[in-house]
Design a protein around this nucleic acid. Structure first.
Lengths: 110, 110
DNA sequence: CGCCGCTATGTCATCTTTGACATAGACGGA
DNA sequence: TCCGTCTATGTCAAAGATGACATAGCGGCG
């Protein structure tokens, strides 16, 4: 797994889709990462829309602020499981989650 | 985590949504499990549609047949990460994945 | 019946993800 | 400037997920 690469990329502020090819990422990995980025962005939006702080959400989730920060950064150490759980817990249903995921297709067309 | 409960339920042929309340599952967990069930079903459909065996898909994924079987059974030991990766690798894009996820809403209305 | 291809279930060492904690940065108000 | 609030990043032990393997069930075909 090239988690380190993803991590380094994101740290540097790159959007992975643009650069994945130049690293050793497979097509599946690229798409998977794009999906995670979309979920991360979606969660941040929902959280902020509800006026919640990361700490508040973390508490509601039985987690910690640092973990939410990493989540929203699409850090390689957070799983999609965790992202989905978080989304559900801020009130997103299947429809909303689906909508968020569909946004991951955006820059495929670009 | 009540993974064992989910597991036992599924083994018995129950659909979790019907019975979750009677166990100690929280609303978030129920929805999360429903989503996993939808993803599992979606993968099986796509796999079969392509005439792939579990073993073939496993090889393509660098995994093993047993893991795919568990995946399609929505076994508690498989993560959404793995489900999503599998879906992507059988050719599902964000749109298809979103569609599958939206089917998890079906029995919310029922 | 025996065999074969496919799927299901169990176990385990190994690797990954988690919550918790510490600490640092960013931004504002007093 | 010094706080206070919010967010970011690093580390670690514990909990969870993974691939591999073994084995069992289940049709169908000879």
């Amino acid at each position: 797994m090239k988690r380190d690469k993803q991590r380094r990329l994101e740290r540097a502020g790159w959007r992975v889709s643009n650069t994945a090819a130049f690293l050793g990422l497979t097509a599946t990995e690229q798409r998977f990462i794009d999906l995670k980025l979309a979920l991360a962005a979606g969660l941040r939006q929902l959280r902020e829309r509800q006026g919640l702080t990361q700490a508040a959400l973390a508490k509601h989730l039985g987690s910690s602020q640092s973990r939410i920060a990493k989540l929203e950064a699409a850090d390689a150490s957070v799983s999609v499981d965790f992202m989905i759980r978080s989304l559900i817990s801020v009130g997103a249903g299947p429809a909303e989650i689906a909508k968020i995921i569909r946004t991951a297709a955006a820059h495929k067309a670009a």
